[in-house]
Simulated assay, not measured.
Amino acid sequence: MDSTIRIIAKAVTWQIAGLFSMTVIGFLFTGSIVAGGGIAVAGAASGFACYFVHEKLWSKVSWGRDTHRV
């Protein structure tokens, strides 16, 4: 099992990799690093918000949960 600090480090490095790759993709489409970075930040923020809402909605669904475990 990973420690909490390891999980946080993995999440941060994953986010950095995602921001970098989205900046490059944004740059390729727009020709601007600033616009590419803006697209990356907006994508990260909207992805976080959508994931949060998605998790909140799924927390209300009981389908697939093993309720017999101790």
Rank of each mutant, 00 (worst) to 15 (best):
Phe48Glu: 06
Trp14Pro: 00
Ala17Pro: 03
Gly37Thr: 01
Leu28Asp: 03
Val12Gln: 09
Phe27Leu: 01
Val34Leu: 11
Glu55Phe: 13
Val41Trp: 04
Ala35Glu: 05
Ile39Trp: 06
Arg65Gly: 00
Leu57Arg: 08
Ile39Glu: 03
Lys60Ala: 10
Ile7Asn: 14
Ala42Ser: 09
Met1Trp: 07
His68Met: 01
Ala45Gly: 13
Gly47Ser: 13
Leu57Asp: 10
Ala44Ser: 07
Ser21Ala: 15
Phe27Gln: 00
Lys10Arg: 03
Trp14Phe: 07
Lys60Met: 08
Glu55Trp: 11
Ala9Ile: 10
Val70Glu: 13
Val12Glu: 05
Ser59Asn: 07
Ser62Tyr: 08
Ala11Ile: 15
Val12Lys: 14
Gly38Leu: 01
Ala44Cys: 14
Lys56Asn: 01
Val12Ile: 15
Val41Met: 04
Val41Asp: 06
Leu57Ser: 04
Ala9Met: 12
Ala11Glu: 11
Lys10His: 06
Ala35Ile: 11
Ser46Asp: 02
Ala35Tyr: 01
Phe20Gln: 01
Arg65Lys: 14
Ile8Met: 05
Ala45Arg: 02
Ala11Trp: 12
Gly43His: 04
Val61His: 11
Arg6Trp: 13
Thr67Arg: 08
His68Asp: 09
Thr30Leu: 11
Met22Thr: 07
Lys56Val: 13
Ala45Thr: 13
Thr4Ala: 14
Ile16Arg: 06
Val70Arg: 15
Ser3Cys: 10
Ile7Val: 14
His54Val: 05
Gln15Trp: 07
Val34Cys: 00
Ala40Pro: 02
Cys50Met: 12
Ser21Lys: 05
Gly64Pro: 07
Gly18Pro: 00
Met1Ile: 11
Asp2Ile: 15
Ser32Asn: 03
Phe52Arg: 09
Leu28Asn: 05
Ala11Pro: 02
Met22Val: 06
His68Cys: 01
Ile33Leu: 15
Val34Pro: 00
Gly64Arg: 07
Thr13Gln: 04
Phe52Trp: 08
Ile8Val: 13
Val34Gln: 03
Arg69Thr: 00
Trp14Asp: 10
Gly47Trp: 05
Leu57Ala: 14
Gly37Asn: 03
Ala44Pro: 12
Cys50Gln: 08
Gly47Val: 04
His54Cys: 12
Ser59His: 07
Val12Asn: 05
Val61Tyr: 06
Met22Arg: 15
Cys50Gly: 06
Gly47Ile: 00
Thr4Phe: 10
Ser32His: 04
Ile7Gln: 12
Ile7Phe: 02
Arg6Pro: 07
Phe27Ala: 10
Ser32Met: 10
Trp58Tyr: 13
Leu19Ala: 05
Gly38Met: 02
Val41Phe: 09
Arg69Pro: 00
Val70Asn: 06
Arg6Asn: 12
Ser59Val: 00
Gly18Arg: 11
Val70Pro: 08
Val24His: 01
Ile8Asp: 01
Lys56Gly: 04
Gly18Ala: 12
Val24Glu: 07
Ala40Trp: 05
Gly31Ile: 04
Arg6Gly: 10
Trp14Asn: 00
Val53Lys: 08
Thr23Pro: 02
Arg65Trp: 10
Ala42Arg: 02
Ile33Gln: 00
Thr30Trp: 14
Tyr51Cys: 10
Ser59Met: 02
Gly37Glu: 02
Ser32Val: 05
Gln15Ile: 09
Gln15Leu: 14
Ala45Pro: 02
Ser3Phe: 11
